[in-house]
Nucleic acid binder design. Structure first.
Length: 545
RNA sequence: GGGCCGGUAGCUCAGUUAGGCAGAGCGUCUGGCUUUUAACCAGAUGGUCGGGGGUUCAACUCCCUCCCGGCCCGCCA
């Protein structure tokens, strides 16, 4: 019965992995609605790696819906987990990442060991620490337009949803011990699969001393808890807790969630593949007597070649990604094979966009591709955009970055049209959307400070000097510009002026770029100059300001 | 140390399920646009499929082994 989470969705003849997974789910003939789950602990700033928990399930949900199934995609905020370490970075609800110094770190430290939902929000805006970071995750989903049902684990406990399954686990404590002991050395004869919350200090503790299932209570001592390389001190309080005043240990809680929510499919990161999944599957089948969901492992992302890591600060949030990418491009990133380690490279993000543009054109039959590539586009593209339209216009990303050189929207549009990136018959909405990419590409150029990061140095002249011949040529060119000519004429004259003064043409172009951008490259100079106000350019080329 | 996943052109990635000519885009180079930047058009360039061994008529694909990266093998989630 054991299911290899690395094998599900692999093989078969499907071009889109989500369809292979959907096949595996359908093969079980599940009850409707089919339930797909994901979940994370709201422990800190959510990054794009966490987003796998939403997006991988999303595509499977869409594939099933497309086949006529009713699907419920739920996401559990595992917010009854205890805070185990104070994170180095936090983020407010506007995604401003701040260091610990800017909030009350001491207050956080005193709350180690408590459930996230019992810790005050460091920013004071949400009901709790847990609610704060769950809100950020929910906002991420909204930003990319994925509709997921959020469920708070704390609320499931508070509402008594966990009580029957918790009771059952405790009734079968012997079996639970036997099963878990195969995966964890710590489990001995005294192990109790329940973690009460101390009535006095509020921490999740482990010191259960007695279980009274008739009364639905456990007795406990609030002991010290090992967390990583540190110890969270217990308060020593001795008390009694109901089955709602605490939680199941993770290895039981996960399968319990499957039971409560009726989960049919759950994707999870590679970190769960060797530990939590085998034990969870075992617990489900041999302790809870339920069928575990169809599993799937996804590989982790790296960011610019380095592991995503909240503790080291190597993170990028969904919000930050959407500064440089359209939501549909970001969604496309998750269309790609989940089983490959994948780098999200900010520097090379133009390649991802190019790839998406081709993917989109394939859907409309306007681009070549292998049979699989075409099938993938036909299948996945409608899940990536809300309303596919053949009239959609995309300006190539790097060209959009070039257009970012000017702030004038009309000039951007004119140049894009002239270069054939906007068809004459494009509807207004498509033109608007196409040009919206310029803002993102410009942000990208500025963020990476790459070769597209042109900035007109209008306020003051860059510190430059020229030889006599170049200086003379610049004066001549300034005179010509002062006469008032169109872009092409100016472009022509740049060549002529350089020839007349016997200076290298590319050197002369560079001189112009240095004066305007403090750079050696830039947009097509003549047409660009023609768009600027004449007085400014003339004065600048005469090196007067 | 043991297990699992990944490694394909300078870059980003398809292809490995079921063995059958090593692929795409970008980049680079050359040429074109009566104008050597950007863009655009045409052509060219590009490979130890991580290394080695084996099976086979035939291996990126299957088997063995080694290297590199990541994850798990304590706790926690």
């Amino acid at each position: 019965m054991a299911e290899d989470p690395y094998e599900v969705g692999r093989g078969g003849s499907r071009a889109f992995w989500a369809d292979s997974v959907a096949d595996a789910i359908e093969a079980r003939d599940p009850d409707e609605p089919i339930v797909i789950k994901g979940g994370v602990s709201p422990s800190g700033v959510p990054h794009i790696g966490h987003f796998n928990e939403i997006m991988r399930g999303y595509y499977v949900a869409e594939a099933l819906r497309d086949r006529g199934h009713e699907v419920r995609q739920v996401f559990t905020a595992d917010d009854k987990d205890r805070l185990r370490a104070v994170p180095r970075q936090l983020a407010d609800l506007d995604w401003n990442v701040v260091g610990l110094g800017e909030v009350d770190a001491g207050a956080l430290g005193r709350n180690l060991g408590k459930p996230y939902t019992d810790i005050p929000d460091p920013f004071g805006c949400c009901d709790s620490y847990g609610a704060h970071f769950t809100t950020l995750l929910r906002k991420s989903a909204e930003l990319v337009g994925v509709d997921v049902e959020f469920v708070s684990n704390t609320e499931l406990y508070a509402d008594g949803e966990f009580e029957p399954v918790t009771r059952r686990v405790l009734e079968r404590a012997d079996r639970a011990r036997d099963v878990l002991a195969e995966y964890q050395n710590k489990v001995d004869d005294d192990y109790v699969p329940f973690l009460p919350q101390c009535a006095d200090c509020g921490k999740i503790t482990e010191g259960v001393t007695a279980v009274d299932l008739d009364a639905g209570e456990v007795e406990y001592v609030c002991e010290d808890v090992e967390a990583g390389d540190q110890t969270i001190e217990g308060c020593g309080h001795e008390g009694t807790a109901t089955l709602r005043d605490g939680k199941l240990p993770w290895r039981f809680e996960w399968p319990a969630q499957w039971e409560i929510l009726g989960v049919d499919f759950e994707p999870f990161g590679k970190d769960h593949a060797e530990g939590s999944w085998p034990s969870g599957e075992d617990v489900a089948e041999n302790v809870l007597d339920i069928q575990p969901p169809v599993p799937m492992v996804y590989e982790w992302f790296t960011l610019d070649g380095e592991p995503l890591s909240s503790s080291s600060g190597n993170v990028i949030t969904v919000d930050e990604v959407l500064d440089i990418l359209e939501p549909e491009v970001f969604k496309y990133f998750f269309v790609k094979d989940p089983r490959k380690q994948r780098d999200f490279s900010v520097e090379n993000v133009d390649q991802l966009v190019d790839e998406f543009d081709r993917f989109e054109r394939r859907y409309f039959g306007d681009a070549d591709g292998s049979e699989d590539e075409v099938e993938l586009a036909e299948r996945a593209y409608p899940m990536v955009v809300d309303e596919p339209s053949e009239e959609q216009v995309r300006i190539p990303y790097t060209f959009a970055a070039v257009l970012g050189m000017t702030d004038d929207p009309e000039q951007r549009e004119q140049i894009a049209r002239k270069e054939g990136h906007i068809p004459d018959d494009a509807p207004d909405w498509a033109v608007e959307q196409a040009l919206a990419r310029v803002e993102r590409a410009q942000e990208w150029a500025s963020l990476t400070n790459n070769e597209f990061n042109y900035e007109l140095k209008r306020a003051e002249m860059p510190d430059v000097s020229f030889d006599d011949a170049t200086a003379a040529a610049l004066d001549e060119l300034a005179d010509f510009i002062a006469e008032g000519h169109d872009g092409e004429a100016i472009q022509s004259e740049i060549y002529e002026t350089a020839k007349r003064n016997d200076i290298d043409i590319s050197e002369f172009f560079s001189a112009g770029y240095r004066l305007l951008f403090d750079d050696t490259e830039g947009p097509q100079l003549g047409t660009f100059i023609a768009k600027l106000d004449r007085e400014f350019v003339v004065e600048r080329f005469r090196r007067n300001e």
